[in-house]
Structures are given as C-alpha cells and as structure tokens.
Design a binder for these strands. Structure first.
Ligand SMILES: [Mn+2]
Ligand SMILES: [Mn+2]
Ligand SMILES: [Mn+2]
Ligand SMILES: [Mn+2]
Lengths: 227, 227
DNA sequence: AAATAAATTTAGACAAAGCTAAAAAATTGT
DNA sequence: ACAATTTTTTAGCTTTGTCTAAATTTATTT
C-alpha cells in the first residue's frame, strides 16, 4: 500500500472510501448526490470536498461530470479498507465481539496512523484473508483475492463456502440458526436443491440437513476464488 | 469512570489530560503557559480552549488565575488515561512493541469512543494494574492503586519492586543491562548499599549482583502500595 | 512605589468541514 | 424543441481550533 506521504484528515479518508465503495457498485463515475447520501452530508459539502481531493490528485473530477478515484486515490482507499477489516477481525477474534457489532468501532480505528501498528496487528491475527463479514482484506500493496459472497439460494449445487453473514438479523432467525447448529464461520457444501419448493440440502458439521428456500435466501456463503 | 454523556473532541480530551498531568506535578492551579508548552500550542489558544472547558464545567477557571480540573474533569482525564495505558499494554504484550515505541500510537488510540471496546480490551489483557512504563491503570470508576516509581538509588534497603524503566535509554546502557541479565519486568530486591560509593547489591533472577551508583540512578523500580 | 518584565487575555484572521438558499447546468417529458 | 424537473455548483455563514500582534494584568526589580 506504500504509505501515502501526505497527511490526510479523517474526513478526507472517509470520502475516499465512500467513493471507492460507490464505484465498485457502478464502475462509472460517482454522482455528487450518491456521495452525499453515503456520507450523510449535503451535496454542496461534497462538491467542496471533491474539489479539495481533486487538488491533491486523489480523484478525477470535472464539474457536473461526477468523480472517480485516481490510482493514488484507489491505493489510499484500499489502505483504509485494509485497516478497517483487520480491526474487525481483531474485534471478533480477539475481543469476542460478534460480527454485527464491530463496524462502528472499526470506522474509528481505521484512521489510526501507524504502519508498524497495522503490520504487527496483521501478524498477530495470522494474516487473515477475509474480515468477519467475508469481505477480502487487501495486502500491503493493495492486492486482494476476489471473494464472492452469495446467498445459498443463488448458488449452484456442489458449491462450497464459509458462512459469513445473514440477510435477516432478527433474533428469531439467529435462534433458529443456533438450534440447527449453523454458525458464522462454518463451512457448508450445497448437496441438492428441490425444484419443487427451492429447499436445499447442505452438509454442516452436524451432518447434512435440509433448509427451506426462505432460509437459503437469508444465508450468505463466501466463496474464495483463488487468483 | 461512568461514561461522560457529552461529546468531547480529540483536542478537548488532550487538553484535559495535559491539565491533569500538570496538576499532578504541582497540585496548585495550572498556568496557561505551562499548558501551552505541554500541548505545543500558543498561550492564546490555551486561553480560548480553557474558556470552552470552563463552559462545560470541566475546569475551574478565573482570568489570570490559572486553571484546575473539576471533579467531572478529573474523571474525564482518568478515563482517557485508562484508555491510553490499556492500549499501551496491548501494544507491548500482544503486538510485541517495545515499551519505548508505544506512546505515540496510544496517544491516538486513547480517543476511540466505545465503552464496550475498552471493557473487552481490559478483559483480553487480564485486567492489568500497570502500563509498560510502570504507571497505574485507573479502573472504570477512576480508582487506581498508587504505585511509586523510584530510582534504585533512592530506595531504602530491602525495598522490592518490578523494573519498569530506565533514565538513560542509550544503546550502550541497554546493552549493559542485557549482559547483566536485567530486563524490564524483572523483580528486584535491594539487599545492601555501600556508604562509600553508593553501589548497591540487588537480587535478580540470576542471583545477587552489585551495581554501581551510576547504574542504580538509572533504573526505575515500581513499588505497588496496596490500598 | 515606580518601572520593568513576564504572563495572560483580547482582537482579528485563517483553514477545515459543514450548512442553507439561490443560481446554473443537465436531464427528462411532452 | 422547449418547459419542467433534477442534479450540481456557488455564495455566504457557522463552528472548531489554531495563529499573530496588541492590550492588559500580575509579578519582580530597583
Ligand atoms: Mn471512518
Ligand atoms: Mn466488514
Ligand atoms: Mn491524544
Ligand atoms: Mn505509559
């Protein structure tokens, strides 16, 4: 990730990250209003910030034409995302937070400035490849293995992956999972799917079980594509 | 420490901490210039900030008369110091930083807002009582066991304590310590002192050794006074 | 008790990041 | 094609935390 030798404020970092995420969704240039919504600010504030980021060559910007990250900006985004996701792993693996409690704190921790810190944290965590939500962690140079996160209901038979999230985070659903020995971090394989009702047979640590279409469309598996 | 229910900025927190430390040294009210020096700002900036802190009842302030922490301010200071020192323990014990590398990063980490985070970190570290520099860690309510950090040369015979720091951090001195099996974290007992040259006999894990007055006046032991 | 020096406060500016209201450009609908 | 709508930018203000220079208060010397 090659340290960026210019000081960036917390706010600038959050904007860069927001622009990165928005351009992942759409790939075209990102609209002022979209950034404003993501950052929970007003479009006029976005215009101001985007001008400043453009001055620093972190984004490419032409009036009324939206904005996109420069290569420099992309690397900054990935370095913040790396930090965010490493801290999330720390919070879950070492401090026993659950995967749905960590985002807000990571949002703060990602801005701590120290290359040594993040290197040592990475080592301490055993160089994880994905965060607790199944999202890939870029390495120091900004490379990461593309991982695909898909609902069980959308995966073909014989797919295999790690359960990394739920769509419906209601207490009743989480209790259901518990009762059926399904937990975040488990590896599942999709054995069969009924044409009739969309129910799916998956293998779990406790043996193979049948789950309804409704359940299958609420569980995310993370499939890592080796590069 | 009973959470403070008002938002504080990073800068306000650092000022409160600075005022706390300065009033430890002197116990009287703290001078504007002293704060300015500590915070590396100008006296006029200090006056501005002190007025704001006074508005929030965090300090007692009368024009030209210096400033002191209110009880509320003291608790805020202790909560930040608690966080600072817990993070220092984390950096040294878990991430293998050395005790002289951690201050700057802890200076950032101490401002992360999350009560759950600091509770879980505390537990993860095994509820440490002192930081890597031998300074006591306040508990959630702001209480801490007073620990005395003194040079071996200043301690009476039969004192016992944990080696927590050096005065002279030159490479030659640190190498000398290494050669004589003296390391941070070791427990020493002062067995005898020669009137003639001030040299001291101490018991170490490798047996008892004699150290010169010069060495004795460069090694800090931390003596914990049980409350 | 002045005079001088030092410490502190005030006044006025500035950069960062935000906001509202108004203007301008781009897009959409007819 | 052109009017209406939506998006984006500009202009002007606000708050935080900082600064310099000038004024004021307190402390120290003669
Ligand atoms: Mn953030
Ligand atoms: Mn995540
Ligand atoms: Mn700090
Ligand atoms: Mn310390």
């Amino acid at each position: 990730m090659l340290l960026y030798y210019f000081e960036m404020t917390l706010s600038e970092e959050d904007y860069i990250k927001a622009i990165y995420h928005l351009s992942q969704i759409d790939s075209k240039s990102v609209a002022t209003n979209a950034i404003a919504e993501q950052m929970k600010t007003k479009p006029s504030s976005v215009t101001d910030m985007v001008k400043k980021l453009s001055e620093k060559s972190l984004v490419k910007y032409k009036k009324y034409q939206g904005v996109s990250l420069s290569e420099k900006g992309r690397l900054v985004a990935l370095s913040i995302i790396r930090k965010h996701r490493l801290w999330e792993v720390f919070l879950v693996d070492k401090l026993n937070f659950s995967w749905d409690e960590v985002h807000e704190v990571a949002e703060q921790l990602e801005h701590i400035k120290s290359d040594a810190l993040i290197d040592k944290l990475d080592a301490h965590l055993g160089f994880p490849k994905v965060d607790p939500h199944g999202d890939p962690i870029p390495n120091k140079e900004g490379f990461f293995t593309k991982s695909v996160k898909k609902l069980i209901s959308e995966l073909p038979i014989l797919s295999e992956g790690v359960c990394v999230g739920v769509n419906d985070s209601s207490v009743t659903f989480l209790k259901f999972l518990d009762k059926n020995n399904i937990a975040l971090g488990d590896t599942f394989k999709i054995l069969d799917r009924e044409e009739f009702d969309g129910s799916v047979t998956i293998s779990t640590r406790a043996g193979s079980i049948r789950i309804s279409e409704q359940i299958a469309s609420n569980l995310f598996l993370e499939i890592v594509d080796e590069e």
